[in-house]
Amino acid sequence: MSHYVDGNAVLGAFSLALGTDLSEGSLECAGCGSSHAIAQTRVYLRCPGMVLRCPECGGVEVVIVEIDHRLNVTLSGVLALRIAPPRASPTT
């Protein structure tokens, strides 16, 4: 039984928490050193928060907890967070 979904499911919340669009962001795992898109992380949502785990080693990278409509983000398993620059708006 697999209880995880892909990182896409938390991009909205995670982006809001950090105040920047993380749609094309990537993480470097502090546990194993691998780099991957946030969308590729394994996300556990059936728990008291949102837990993002490394798709390579399974280690916890990010924990997000919503407390009174505020998002508390713990980046304990992240060596580096890389945020792509905002894209040119397609309409201008």
């Binding site: 982006s15 809001l16 920047t20 669009d21 040119a88 708006s89 201008t92």
Partner: peptide, 14 residues
């Protein structure tokens, strides 16, 4: 020039 301007506030959609 104008057409290449970057959108500065990318979180409005969230």
């Amino acid at each position: 020039t104008r057409a290449r301007a970057l959108r500065v506030a990318p979180l409005v959609h969230l």
